[in-house]
Amino acid sequence: MTRQAVNLSLIGTTRDRALDGLRGIAALMVFFSHVAMMTWFPREGGAAPNDLEYAMWHLGAPAVDLFFVLSGYVLAASLEGVKIDGATIGSFLARRWVRLMPVAWVGVALGLAVRTLIVPMQQDPLVGMINMDQPLRWQDWVGFITFTFPMPDTDRFNVPLWTLVMEMYASFLIPVTVAGVRKKGRLFLLPAFTSWIILWYVSGRLEFMTLPLFVLGVAVRVYAADLPRKSLKVALMIGLLLVFSRYLLDVLHVWQRYVSGVGAALLILAVRGGAARAFLTCAPVGWLGKISYPFYAVHFPLVVASSILLSAKGVGSTLAAMMALPVALAVAEVVHRTIEQLSIRTSRRMAWKGKSLAGQRLPKRLRPLEHFHEER
């Protein structure tokens, strides 16, 4: 397809049900990590974990790394055929904000309710609560609304929502990166990757060290060809080993995130080629992928509430936290059917101010954000 013959109907049609399933599995991994976090967290201490708790805790960070790489990949794909300029980026940011924020605010509301009503009831402080009993600052209240600036301390109300702040920053980063690749060539990805590492060092914000993972996802989209069919299982196995290398090698260094990021890239390539497709597209995993974003947004306050309320009745800490799973899935389904679907429809109705690479104005209802990964 030449640049002059871009078919506008094809723009944004990058949805892959297998990648949705991968997203759902990653969301479940984060849940199990937070279950283990109720009794043990490396930087906070707590009782020594048993083997199961230790393994569950190590599921969280690799899952988030996978989310970020997958987000870069999918959003770069959604911009194919679209001319990127100031109007495009502004429209892209506005639609992303409308798409993401309503569900994020549900997570905020649940976190505020739990810290106000249930956290004061605890008898023994939970390790995984981190700062949920700390007072909220003005920047937290403003950050609840914007999820950009100022950056809220999500540890004080709903820990995993920090990733949504990174997603909003990446909403600017990804179009700029794609535009740079088109103008300067694929080697532009190297300075893009390193510049965000430099920002991490200069700012001192540990969260920023995850931004290069979005660039890695863009690189997978613009660089990588389809893997040979015979190599798919090998790529899948190597990807899994790299993703879980933090646990396998017992290494907690922050640079390990880039190792698991490379593993996530291999997983995406393998799944795109057809590896594990039957499992990832089966009905239960597909449903989990469908509700993965609201599930990610609401599960942590429910884990904290379940841990406090059931532990007070003599239920073991890990089991008490685990019993939040059916509640979190049910709440996620309700949020998906109501608030998330409404935000999707609203973002689709917003005027898309971009043009195709052929200079044609894009239809108002074009949906380049339809395939945003629903994490977190």
Rank of each mutant, 00 (worst) to 15 (best):
residue 212 P to D: 10
residue 230 K to L: 12
residue 219 A to S: 13
residue 288 L to E: 15
residue 277 R to D: 05
residue 211 L to D: 08
residue 234 V to S: 09
residue 251 V to A: 15
residue 247 Y to P: 04
residue 211 L to A: 09
residue 199 L to G: 12
residue 215 V to Q: 01
residue 261 G to R: 02
residue 271 V to Q: 08
residue 263 G to H: 04
residue 225 A to F: 14
residue 209 M to E: 07
residue 238 I to Q: 04
residue 270 A to M: 03
residue 243 V to R: 14
residue 232 L to K: 04
residue 206 L to D: 09
residue 210 T to M: 15
residue 235 A to G: 11
residue 220 V to F: 01
residue 272 R to C: 02
residue 200 W to S: 11
residue 277 R to K: 13
residue 213 L to F: 05
residue 219 A to N: 09
residue 264 A to S: 15
residue 255 W to L: 15
residue 214 F to Q: 11
residue 258 Y to F: 15
residue 247 Y to S: 11
residue 283 A to H: 05
residue 271 V to T: 11
residue 228 P to N: 04
residue 229 R to E: 11
residue 231 S to T: 14
residue 242 L to Y: 02
residue 234 V to K: 03
residue 272 R to G: 11
residue 224 A to E: 07
residue 212 P to R: 14
residue 249 L to G: 05
residue 262 V to F: 15
residue 220 V to E: 00
residue 223 Y to M: 15
residue 278 A to H: 05
residue 222 V to I: 08
residue 288 L to V: 08
residue 268 I to G: 01
residue 201 Y to D: 08
residue 208 F to W: 14
residue 262 V to S: 07
residue 262 V to Q: 07
residue 272 R to D: 06
residue 233 K to C: 04
residue 273 G to F: 00
residue 250 D to L: 05
residue 256 Q to F: 09
residue 264 A to H: 06
residue 257 R to K: 14
residue 260 S to R: 06
residue 280 L to F: 12
residue 259 V to A: 06
residue 255 W to R: 10
residue 276 A to H: 03
residue 240 L to S: 09
residue 283 A to S: 11
residue 269 L to M: 13
residue 285 V to M: 09
residue 252 L to V: 12
residue 262 V to I: 15
residue 207 E to C: 01
residue 244 F to S: 12
residue 269 L to I: 03
residue 264 A to M: 10
residue 260 S to A: 15
residue 236 L to F: 06
residue 254 V to E: 14
